[in-house]
């Protein structure tokens, strides 16, 4: 049940996407997102969707896993689609139900929106979360954001917090599973009653979970202290990041892709 959550989990592998420099992946993601939102005609949407699947193939990550991640946002997609269908007005009236009118434009927008969300999720998860280990991800993020230090923004601290948060997601999920089982063994019932009763039934899970999370945080702080952790000042790294030729190639491919999509906007 809880273990089936895959959103934002690293899937070890050996593809080109796994080997890219994390900093480059962050730039690529930004370009990719801009491209997705720049697309505004059927041909470019076909291209965007195709690119998402091409990325998926390159990453060699099982499609099943990614599709399961999509299932999690199914509700958001359905909601966006419905809103777009009913609230967009245009010239080509398809159906007049009195209060609501459905236009051809609404349906087109709904389809575009869904394609956008699907590409966004496949693209970002394949480019970043599934193919980048949490450590590499925060390391890359820290480097990319390093210029903000000039503005006295504690970049290192933020990235450390992110690393720790990511590191503890699986631990906390496991812990939650264990506590739920233990309370079930004491006769807790999570599946019946009205909303209020169900919310109340969660107290025996939430309290121990919070207590142990704080406890863990305390222990971790002490363990870091013992290893002389003093923040980012003057801290060196075991792995130094260097851009490789594959990073440059990917950047050129991605930029050309954006150029094509934007060019298509002017043609149509």
């Amino acid at each position: 049940m809880l273990k089936d959550i895959t959103l934002g989990q690293y899937f070890p592998g050996n593809s080109v996407l796994h080997k890219l420099d994390p900093r480059m992946k962050i730039f690529l993601i930004i370009i990719y997102i801009v491209t997705i939102f720049a697309a505004n005609n059927p041909l470019s949407f076909v291209l965007v969707l195709a690119s998402a699947f091409v990325l998926m193939l390159i990453s060699k990550i099982p499609a099943k896993l990614i599709l399961r991640g999509l299932k999690a946002v199914f509700f958001i997609m359905a909601f966006t689609a419905v809103i777009n269908i009913f609230w967009t007005s245009g010239e080509h009236l398809l159906l007049d139900l009195g209060i609501v009118k459905i236009y051809m434009e609404g349906i087109t927008y709904a389809v575009f929106m869904i394609v956008r969300v699907i590409s966004l999720i496949i693209g970002t998860s394949v480019l970043l979360t599934y193919t980048t280990s949490p450590i590499a991800l925060t390391d890359g993020l820290e480097r990319v954001l390093a210029p903000l230090k000039v503005l006295h923004i504690p970049v290192h601290e933020f990235s450390m917090m992110m690393t720790i948060a990511l590191r503890f997601i699986p631990t906390l999920i496991e812990e939650t599973d264990k506590i739920i089982s233990a309370q079930k063994a004491r006769g807790a019932d999570f599946n019946s009653g009205n909303l209020m009763q169900r919310a109340k039934a969660l107290i025996p899970v939430m309290v121990p979970l919070f207590v142990s999370a704080f406890h863990r945080a305390d222990e971790l702080a002490i363990a870091m202290e013992c290893r002389c952790y003093r923040g980012g000042e003057g801290r060196t790294r075991m792995t130094q990041l260097h851009y490789q030729s594959q990073d440059i190639v990917m950047l050129i491919v991605m930029l050309s892709f954006m150029a094509v999509v934007i060019a298509l906007n002017f043609i149509f």
Binding site: K178, I179, S181, A182, Q183, P204
Partner: peptide, 19 residues
């Protein structure tokens, strides 16, 4: 759930379930 009342189970390190 009736069976869980007949068969009690104390997990490993059960002190983490107190609330």
């Amino acid at each position: 759930s009736q069976i869980r009342f007949r068969v009690g189970l104390v997990f490993q390190y059960p002190e983490y379930q107190l609330f």
